[in-house]
């Protein structure tokens, strides 16, 4: 049996973490949780996950971006798939996330709440695993 792929989830909402963890575990992944950006970056180093999902807006707006930049700046984080989560105004494109050209690569931006099948689908696409039904 191959080892489970590891996913790091960084979000300051405990309930969101728990709900999303259940979905990811159902999808067959091993899940690590961090409740703030700083812990998230530390866990990245110790866990070395295969993929990370980062909330854009934690205690301060933009904390997610700084976490993303820090991870991308590390050797281990250069090519790892990273997803951003956004709950910013869902209606209309005004505030949807459009990274500036020099911004570190984001593999997907997901709107909160995210449907279980969509989430697992995006992850499977990045990690090459088969999609769980």
């Amino acid at each position: 049996m191959t080892a489970k792929k590891r996913i790091l989830l960084i979000d300051d909402d405990k309930d969101f973490l728990f709900a999303t963890k259940l979905i990811l575990e159902k999808g067959g992944y091993e899940v690590f949780l961090a409740e703030d950006g700083k812990t998230g970056v530390e866990m990245w180093k110790s866990v070395a996950p295969d993929l990370a999902i980062i909330d854009m807006m934690m205690e301060t707006w933009g904390e997610g971006f700084s976490v993303l930049s820090k991870i991308r700046a590390m050797d281990t984080g250069k090519d790892t798939p990273l997803f951003m989560l956004s709950a910013v105004d869902l209606q209309g494109p005004y505030n949807s996330f459009e990274p500036p050209p020099e911004f570190p690569k984001v593999n997907a931006v997901l709107q909160k709440p995210v449907k279980a099948e969509d989430l697992l689908g995006y992850i499977a696409r990045e990690l090459g695993g088969k999609k769980m039904s």
Partner: peptide, 22 residues
Amino acid sequence: VSHEMRSPLVVIRQYIEALKAV
């Protein structure tokens, strides 16, 4: 309203998704 009311709604829908998945 935008922060305090929307985030619990988002979380509840995420739980519903989790419930369906689990």
